[in-house]
Simulated scan of single mutants.
Amino acid sequence: MNRPEVICHMVSTIDGKIVGQSFAEEGLRPYLEFYVQTKQKFETQATVYGASTAKEIFVGKDMEAFARPSQITDDPDYICGQHAPYFVVAIDPLGEIPWKSGKPDGRPGLEDARIIVITSSQASKEYLRKLCKMLDSSQWPLET
Results as ranks from 00 to 15, higher is better:
Ile18His: 04
Phe23Gln: 01
Gln21Cys: 06
Phe42His: 11
Arg107Asn: 09
His83Cys: 04
Lys100Leu: 11
Val48Asp: 05
Lys41Met: 11
Tyr127Thr: 05
Asp92Lys: 00
Gly27Thr: 03
Phe87Leu: 14
Ala24Glu: 15
Asp136Met: 04
Ser124Asp: 01
Ser121Lys: 12
Asp62Glu: 11
Ser101Phe: 05
Glu126Ala: 08
Gly60Ala: 04
Leu131Glu: 01
Ile116Leu: 12
Gln21Lys: 14
Val6Ala: 14
Ser101Cys: 08
Arg68Val: 07
Gly109Gln: 05
Pro104Leu: 08
Pro4Ile: 03
Thr47Lys: 05
Thr119Met: 03
Lys130Gly: 01
Asp112Glu: 14
Glu143Pro: 07
Val36Tyr: 03
Gly16Thr: 02
Phe23Met: 02
Gly27Tyr: 07
Pro104Ala: 13
Glu26His: 10
Ser12Asp: 11
Arg129Trp: 15
Gln139Leu: 15
Asp15Cys: 05
Ile72Pro: 07
Gly27Asp: 10
Pro108Ser: 09
Ile14Cys: 08
Val11Cys: 03
Ile72Leu: 09
Phe66Asp: 02
Phe23Ala: 00
Cys80Gly: 08
Ile116Cys: 09
Leu135Arg: 06
Val36Met: 03
Ser138Glu: 14
Val19Asn: 12
Ile79Ala: 08
Lys103Ser: 10
Thr13Asp: 09
Ser22Cys: 13
Ser138His: 09
Gly106Met: 04
Asp62Cys: 04
Leu32Tyr: 06
Pro93His: 02
Thr53Glu: 07
Ala24Pro: 02
Cys80Ile: 15
Ala24Gln: 15
Glu25Thr: 02
His9Val: 06
Thr38His: 08
Tyr127Trp: 10
Glu25Ser: 14
Glu26Cys: 03
Glu25Leu: 15
Gly81Arg: 06
Trp99Gln: 07
Ala84Asp: 00
Arg114Glu: 00
Lys125Gln: 11
Ile116Asp: 03
Tyr78Ile: 15
Val48Glu: 05
Thr73Ile: 02
Gly16Asp: 09
Leu131Met: 03
Ile57Trp: 05
Ala90Phe: 01
Asp15Val: 04
Gln139Met: 13
Ala90Gln: 03
Phe58Cys: 10
Gln21Val: 04
Phe34Lys: 12
Ile115Lys: 05
Glu26Pro: 03
Ala90Asn: 03
Glu143Gly: 11
Ser22Val: 12
Asp75His: 10
Lys133Trp: 14
His9Pro: 01
Ile116Gly: 04
Ser70Asn: 10
Leu94His: 07
Phe42Lys: 07
Lys61Arg: 13
Gln82Leu: 12
Tyr78Gln: 07
Met134Ile: 04
Glu96His: 12
Ile91Asn: 09
